[in-house]
Amino acid sequence: MAETMSVVLNVNGSGRAVSVEPRKTLADAIREDLGLTGTHLGCEHGVCGACTILLDGEVVRSCLLLAVQADGAEITTIEGIGAGDDLHPMQQAFSEYHGLQCGFCTPGMILAGIDVVSRNPDPTPQEIREEMGGNICRCTGYQKIVESVQAAAAVMSTEGGSA
């Protein structure tokens, strides 16, 4: 059995020290060691996008990173988006435009959507479909997700909002 290693995960603005085996994925550390279960795990091999987070501002799969690799990095999970009932425009749009049903894929969709709009403030429906092709939803049929991201983009461009 490998030794555990001490790492500091700066999650949503606060540094948290955890002791993990090197083989522990960042996704598991976020859920099990930090108790932030908003980051979901679907496939655990980089296909479904449910575990999407921001690492130093870049969208990544947390199931394809080891927790020890994130030592010292700035991590944003779904819990760091919005503040309680004060929703981020992307969350608000998913609510208003029915961009979710069961909600399993939603944390990853929200973070991926914010990333898309941060790089392309006025994406076309086709661009949203291509950019978010790495996030799988089994409920909505995607139409409402595309509408949600477009609606959020309109709000974010007028508010200058970001993650």
Partner: peptide, 9 residues
């Protein structure tokens, strides 16, 4: 190649 999240790493 994959998606943005894949290409970032």
């Amino acid at each position: 190649i994959g998606h943005r999240a894949i290409r970032n790493r």
